[in-house]
Design a protein around this nucleic acid. Sequence first.
DNA 1: GGAGTGATACTCGGATATCTGGTGTCCGAGTTTTCGCGG
DNA 2: CCGCGAAAACTCGGACACCAGATATCCGAGTATCACTCC
Lengths: 162, 162
Amino acid sequence: MKLSEGVEWGLHCGVLLGFVGPDASLPTARLAEYHGVPGAYLAKHLQAMSRAGILESVQGPGGGYRLARPAADITVLEVVEAIDGRESAFQCAEIRRRGPSARPAREYRVPCSIHSLMNRADEAWREELRRVSLADLMGQVVAGASPKGLEQGARWMQEVLK
Amino acid sequence: MKLSEGVEWGLHCGVLLGFVGPDASLPTARLAEYHGVPGAYLAKHLQAMSRAGILESVQGPGGGYRLARPAADITVLEVVEAIDGRESAFQCAEIRRRGPSARPAREYRVPCSIHSLMNRADEAWREELRRVSLADLMGQVVAGASPKGLEQGARWMQEVLK
DNA sequence: GGAGTGATACTCGGATATCTGGTGTCCGAGTTTTCGCGG
DNA sequence: CCGCGAAAACTCGGACACCAGATATCCGAGTATCACTCC
């Protein structure tokens, strides 16, 4: 079970776009350059986030992506689900209904206990991600990054948005 | 992010072996037959569980697998980790250190906030699976299955162990 | 009848193919900007 | 100098290759069983 690498990219992009603010936008190429990742592939994930209503796209020169809503209203879970999909990690194949001890379908009224447990665990995972917004992450970045790093990032952004 | 199908198989096999008890064992072919899954592939996962110290293998005719410990002492998490691996679903690539705003390594003293959050979520997921043992699952099966289904399963087991 | 011995059948264990989904890339559709021209 | 228009450049969006890991399978190593033979 491995989470798509694009999830990390999407989250970082979301945080960066949060710093950019609602009145400007960054194109895929800049976002990729800033994070040191292949732009052509990053585009795929940004499109997914756009379809999910997390990002807004602006066409033409000077365009790019920006957050569709305030960063405080976007949860990490939304980003993860937009990129990695909304379905649970565990897909119950109902193998209890197969083999020599199989019974007619109507006798399986209680859901598979393994399935239930897995769903519970999955929900716990999602709940943790739901608790945190992009704004929260932005705050942690500001609090945790070195002053020089923040200044360097601000300088880069100023240069790009110019 | 999709969990290996083998996890479901391994858990069901663990539960079934719990019912078999510590004095008998079931070979791969019987376990596969009971669950209606390809035996050659199931073998791979049973081997993994054996390596992890969850199952014990008995060679030769009449041999097979049995639980290495009481079912109450085996958590679902153990089985999942034995088959799917022990590492977190999220692998932080530290992309914050790349690109134009990168800083010397010593300036990154605080762990990446995204990484921390993902680890927290992962731990919540694992904690749910740690809470439940194979014995718990066995109890739920007994409580939830239809009487006819239980009898049919018992009959099959009696036939196989004969 | 009982013990020893060899063959046999059955089991696990790891090494080997195949295939789906993630990874990576590309080009076309659409829009904004910009430059040139005319008034 | 100002307005208009066409061209150009830049952007997103979806369609197209490639590759690693999961899926699926096989055969060899090892052992308990069983039958046969001999005492």
